[in-house]
Design a binder for these strands. Sequence first.
DNA 1: AAAACGAAGGAAAACGTTTTCCCTGTTGTG
DNA 2: CACAACAGGGAAAACGTTTTCCTTCGTTTT
Lengths: 339, 339
Amino acid sequence: MGKTASQMTKRMMQASSIKEVAALAGVSIATVSRVVNGVANKASDETVERVRKAIATLDYRPTSAGRDLRRRTSRLVAVLAANLANPAMTAIAASAEAALRENGLVMVLCDTHDQPELQDEYIREMLAQQARAIVLLGAVDSFMLRRAQESSIPLVFVNRRAPDGPMRGFIGIDNQRAGEDVARWALARGLQNAVLIHAPTASSATRERVQGILAGFAAAGTPLGTSRVLAPQAPDHLRIGRDAALDLIRGCDRPDLVICTSDLIAFGVARAWREALPGQQAPRLIGFDDSPMNEWLAPNLNSVRIPYEAYGRAIVEALLGGDRCATIVLAHQIIERQT
Amino acid sequence: MGKTASQMTKRMMQASSIKEVAALAGVSIATVSRVVNGVANKASDETVERVRKAIATLDYRPTSAGRDLRRRTSRLVAVLAANLANPAMTAIAASAEAALRENGLVMVLCDTHDQPELQDEYIREMLAQQARAIVLLGAVDSFMLRRAQESSIPLVFVNRRAPDGPMRGFIGIDNQRAGEDVARWALARGLQNAVLIHAPTASSATRERVQGILAGFAAAGTPLGTSRVLAPQAPDHLRIGRDAALDLIRGCDRPDLVICTSDLIAFGVARAWREALPGQQAPRLIGFDDSPMNEWLAPNLNSVRIPYEAYGRAIVEALLGGDRCATIVLAHQIIERQT
DNA sequence: AAAACGAAGGAAAACGTTTTCCCTGTTGTG
DNA sequence: CACAACAGGGAAAACGTTTTCCTTCGTTTT
């Protein structure tokens, strides 16, 4: 009663543990483990060869549960993103995923929706999973985050700094400088009548961008009055932009440039203009982040590009570097699509 | 020499295993485990209460490695997406993430870039991680995929069907019908001179959409001749759209409608038109997928909307339903932005 | 020639759970 | 009263690794 090959496969798919490899190679499981982990000086070349062959035959891979249990750590790296609806964040996440997997790590992606409770829930879960590290892609202040900061798990803050202030495992562009650059860019083009729309300043990224922009205009002797700075309350950036734009449209003094602290805000502005004043061109716009799709979709949007592709490598570097306070500043660049 | 509270916290952050809980509650670890897992009839109410309190005090969570090892399964669900640069995919992934976590599962997100080798690598890794299930968000045919299909791990195919044909754990819209609907929509608006641009038909979704569209036009007695169907080779959908549009622009017979099997293709068409013929309006466009951002960014793009928010629930349902061949058809809807 | 050392590899402990037995009352049931 | 049934709970095995000790050789150093 021989089984067919496919039936055998079905039966065999399940496991193939280290024991079977050891049996097949005629060695102890300790030796197999050592070969798998490349421990030197513990196996002769021919033994290594035999084990390798057995591993290949059985298509063996160490079960992570066993390894994690013993090593008290796992290959999981949690990426807690503030908002996956933002193309800029998903672009960074994609970059992180590629870089992590190149280093044998696995990305777990979560969306905290910028809510402390959800972020805490995820941090708890990831600690239970013995995650190797936690990457906060737009952190919000929360209880477990502060606890995690005191523990030994590596934390990397991307784009937004750690809640309690000082540089600490931070990766991102120099937002203040980027803000200043935007101001300079505007002034160099003779745009005198700018308006700034920004998101809530709970985010350090937004805060620093705003500071930079204001500082830039002030330094040129043409400070932005408070009447030219808008920050409406709204559930998301798109709506912040729309609401602010509707305000502008109602007013009489039309700006010649609208500066937004994120591209999403700019999208909202553009849409409001389009719908409220059909046929009439929206004012010149500049935003931040410049997601990869902008090139195709938003031909009129100027933006400060952050180097997505670079984030993944930077994150891995910060993680494996061991330095818990490494700060990696990435280069930004103004993309001009409509002068 | 008493330690400060913060020092204590630091020391304590590490573990808090089931043993400590048991000790604190004055019971055996077996009892703690039973309380955690809600096993009935194995502990008196007061014991349960004591254990609960101990768990709360120590902020205990079962370490997944231990649990996974014993149970030979984990809470990880792998989502293998074909292309994270596509906003439609990330929207579905976000929906999946939320639904999974509501059911105590954790999403691992990977980008296969539509490459069989990479998909295989991920499948291997996820099998080693003892993933609870694998969700293929745009599967490509590959060796390990076929092997996985023969094994016992739950597989869910989203948008694209399993490579070897028959309905099998499939979730998505009825692409053929959607295609027919698009044809009807076009004809009802008197658009006689349509052109179809489509991606490679290795994807069942694309194939079925194309079939539906062609069938729809044919049924009305106005079949789309082969000269009106374009499918250029290009590394991604955006470029497929651009290349096809450049072809159209070179030709003399301008279409009154361009049908694209994905919105990304449509974005490419729009861009090509914009750049090749500045100031001149692109032809009427209709695409598929209608990512959430379209509403803000692509005011002129008609599209067949797939119900993102519904995917997460459907995926979980297919996973937990136990039926390995469940097919969940979601409802599509034509979004008309420019008539 | 004795001592020391290094290479090769095995046995077994440990990691933190879950779960299967088992044991001890207590409570019906005949 | 005998006996079953059951509630409550503990001891210990098992899951698949990694790693710490050992042991056994063969080689080099004194």
